[in-house]
Amino acid sequence: MTVDAILESIPPLAVYLVVGLIIGLESLGIPLPGEIALVSAALLASRHTLDISPVWVGAAATIGAIIGDSIGYTIGRRFGMGLFERLGTRFPKHFGPGHVALAKQLFSRWGVWAVFFGRFIALLRILAGPLAGALHMHYGRFLAANASGAVCWAGGTTAVVYYLGLAAEKWLARFSWVALVIAIIAGIGLTLLLRERTRTLIAQLESEHDWETLRKRE
Rank of each mutant, 00 (worst) to 15 (best):
S40Q: 02
A42R: 09
A42S: 15
L43W: 11
L43C: 10
L43V: 11
L43Q: 04
L43D: 10
L43F: 15
L44W: 05
L44F: 09
A45G: 13
S46P: 07
S46I: 09
S46R: 08
S46D: 09
R47D: 13
R47V: 00
R47G: 06
H48N: 09
H48C: 00
H48R: 14
T49Q: 14
T49G: 04
T49D: 15
T49H: 13
T49S: 15
L50D: 09
D51W: 11
D51M: 13
I52H: 09
I52R: 13
I52W: 10
S53H: 06
P54G: 04
V55K: 13
V55I: 14
V55C: 02
W56V: 01
W56H: 12
W56M: 15
W56K: 02
W56R: 05
V57C: 10
V57T: 14
V57I: 12
V57S: 10
G58R: 08
G58V: 13
G58W: 07
A59M: 14
A59T: 13
A61D: 04
A61S: 06
A61W: 04
T62G: 06
I63R: 05
I63Q: 05
G64T: 01
A65I: 01
A65E: 06
A65L: 08
I66W: 04
I67M: 07
I67Q: 03
I67S: 03
G68M: 00
G68A: 03
G68F: 00
D69K: 00
D69L: 00
